[in-house]
Design a protein around this nucleic acid. Structure first.
Lengths: 343, 343
DNA sequence: CTGAAAGCGCTTACAG
DNA sequence: CTGAAAGCGCTTACAG
């Protein structure tokens, strides 16, 4: 596939590069007949502008960056596959590529490198922590940022978040209304803002109903099947065990379900179970038996929206006008019942 | 952060852009004292070359592409998060970025666009199918390709694969040696080469021992918890049920474990279970009870190696010399026992 | 409505 | 060992 460039294409058409460029880029002053000829020729020669040349000339990179941890750790999360998928789809709408970069050393260095090399026009920050050094660091770099989640920062950055606090408050309230008094929370690592918000929701609902939030019923850590199983086991073996469990991810949820069964108990009738579902296809709570009640929000849809926000800012929108907190569905299924009377 | 460019940096040093460029890029002919001065100034001014300008001048994109399905489907796989992580880490070694692109329409169009725009220097093809149109399409585009997996193609493309056939042959043989005669296979979708290879391994081991490969004991589909559960349930309810199950992913494995328990049976003692483990942290087979016997290969390590192969080809290596089939570990744990005598 | 020319910021023969 | 200059392939004021 030999590639034709602008020079060759315009020579073939007997037009200047200027006119051909304008015709292809939709400038209004081009004669319609000329534009048709140009478009036709471009199609026939399969002309594709050289991305580097265009970027150099315009100063726009045509790409957004996501810095992704390669060192493993709690953020090397299967959910990213879905989130990425959404971001890519959203970015494709604006012919924008998505650049994945490693934070082998530190996120700041990675950001800085991308920004200074003018490789990207904007940055998506994932997995924000409560006190996230990255958001502060980025304010010194002149690069639009969209945070997937939130952080405590006085800088008016753009973010897309879901209402984690509200979701876990609702779920806890629902369990309280069913009659539960001891409700365990198996949360993500509390360095992450989302986990702090979920904890706050759980605390708020308990307090509102005059219930204690006993420390033995609050766990946090990596959102894995193993941790869900371990923490649920620990709680259920407590002298005064919980009658319901609330989990922060589908992985900890199925781990908790395993713990419940391992102890000879039944999910739903013996121990109620609610999990947060990001909507990945690999494990669907509705396919469990009993089907598991969830707080649900598609992380893939979040990715799409994040890309749209990026596009909005690049079109000149005020970052401070993109601060979105989306509601989370509470989907009642069969894993939540009134507690059994103590035997 | 005001950015200094090559022109400004060299003016400050009283040198030509030529010399500064050469000093920074490690050309041997530069005087050592000069090089030191240049490097020192570059550091002090935090000079970073403009990526677009460099790309335009050199003709190298400095990025490799992965085309990723955004439309969902069987390939929107949580395992990708780990694979990506490996590719990014491997690519970072060579200062190469990773560009994620959508295949909203078709993979061919996406490839073509990236290739013609000179946005990438090489392409990583994931999830190869037996008859993969993409590999053929790519042979018409002048772009080095590394396939993660294999496909049937006469074109001598580079690939990194694991020995899926050998792994599943070994696992099946191990079960046969334990005394199992009816061994169910819950596989991925047979459009994918890896699934065909695993099926072949299962068939080969059975045939070698004079055992039949009954169709009711071979299932294929999406590698989800749900499918693992459904197919295991179906097989175990058969009039002549399997005494052992072999699963193609950690998700189907835990689904199968759930099915075994739902039917009142015990994993390991009643029904042996072996799963393929790609090494993701979210679900670890060794943390199950009983710990699950696996065929194991780190998909993240595969990503790292794929990036290394790309680098090798870009340095002028012969693609045909990078055709790697890596062995898979069989890790014996507690989910595999001799079959119980029929009651 | 169209075109000649400058410029984006690098790299790299070529000359000295 | 160093530098002047051309060139990579676009976009975009500016002029007509």
């Amino acid at each position: 596939v030999s590639t034709v460039n602008l020079e060759q294409l315009s020579r073939h058409l007997g037009l200047s590069k200027t006119t051909v460029s304008r015709a292809l880029n939709g400038f209004p002053e081009v004669n319609e007949e000329t534009r048709r000829r140009v478009q036709e020729a471009a199609r026939r020669f399969d002309y594709t502008p050289n991305a580097s040349a265009r970027r150099l000339a315009t100063g726009r990179a045509g790409a957004i960056g996501i810095v992704y941890p390669t060192a493993g750790g709690p953020m090397l999360d299967p959910l990213f596959a879905d989130f990425f998928s959404g971001v890519i789809e959203g970015a494709a709408e604006d012919d924008t590529d998505v650049l994945l970069s490693s934070t082998y050393t530190s996120a700041e260095i990675a950001y800085r490198r991308l920004a200074k090399a003018k490789s990207i026009d904007a940055l998506v920050v994932t997995g924000p922590q409560v006190e996230d050094v990255r958001v502060r660091a980025l304010s010194h770099i002149d690069l639009p940022v969209v945070v997937h989640g939130r952080t405590t920062s006085s800088i008016p950055y753009a973010f897309y978040d879901i209402d984690n606090e509200g979701a876990f408050r609702s779920a806890t309230e629902m369990l309280i209304r069913l009659g539960h008094r001891r409700i365990g929370l198996i949360n993500g690592d509390l360095v992450f803002t989302f986990a702090v918000h979920r904890s706050a929701g759980w605390h708020a609902a308990l307090a509102e109903h005059g219930l204690a939030a006993p420390p033995e019923l609050e766990a946090s850590g990596a959102m894995t099947e193993e941790v869900g199983w371990r923490e649920a086991t620990r709680m259920l073996r407590h002298a005064d065990p919980p009658t319901a469990l609330l989990c922060s991810s589908i992985f900890s949820t199925i781990g908790a379900a395993r713990a419940i069964r391992d102890l000879g108990l039944r999910v739903g009738t013996d121990v109620s179970l609610v999990g947060h579902d990001d909507g990945i296809q690999a494990i669907r709570p509705e396919a469990q038996r009993p089907a598991i009640t969830t707080t649900h929000s598609s992380i893939r849809a979040g990715g799409v929206r994040v890309a749209e926000i990026v596009a909005g800012i690049l079109r000149g929108g005020d970052p401070a006008s993109f601060r979105e907190i989306h509601p989370v569905d509470l989907i009642f299924r069969d894993s939540t019942h009134p507690p059994r009377r103590r035997t």
